[in-house]
């Protein structure tokens, strides 16, 4: 510690356990979704300029790059949702914090079950060359 501050490396070292990775990924995915939301609001604004302007704006999304970005967005939204609910449940019933590791693994399983089918749905048209 340097003067009570946590340096980046110390931050990474902090406990270093499963719960820290779950927390770090929660932050990262949250900021990612927020960044997309900002872009999404700006692109929606083009609706007010008419069909040509809006269709031109969203044509940027219709590319392989954004199809991959969409998978990342799905990952972020699903992870943030499942992990957020886990934290909320534990917050309202603090006795459950004892079972945090089990809860993290359970939420990871729910996340995988939800994410994998949607990721496949995104990858298939990409493989078929539709983007």
């Amino acid at each position: 510690m340097t003067g009570g501050r946590v340096t980046f490396r110390e931050g990474l070292r902090y406990r270093g356990g499963l719960n820290m990775y779950a927390w770090a990924l929660h932050r990262l995915t949250g900021l990612g979704v927020l960044a997309f939301l900002a872009v999404h609001i700006i692109e929606t604004f083009f609706l007010t300029l008419g069909p040509d302007a809006y269709n031109a704006a969203i044509s940027i999304y219709k590319s392989p790059f954004f199809k991959v970005a969409e998978i990342a967005l799905t990952f972020a939204v699903l992870y943030h949702a499942v992990n957020g609910i886990r934290v909320t449940i534990q917050d309202f019933w603090p006795a459950l914090w004892r079972y945090e590791r089990a809860f993290i693994w359970a939420s990871a399983a729910i996340f995988v079950l939800a994410f994998v089918p949607l990721a496949i749905l995104s990858i298939l048209p990409l493989l078929r060359g539709e983007y």
């Binding site: 969203i58 219709k62 799905t74 699903l78 749905l121």
Partner: peptide, 18 residues
Amino acid sequence: MTHLVIMHYGITVNELSF
């Protein structure tokens, strides 16, 4: 989640239009 599934997987980005 409902928004994501409808707008990204029901209607896909390719089909989205004004």
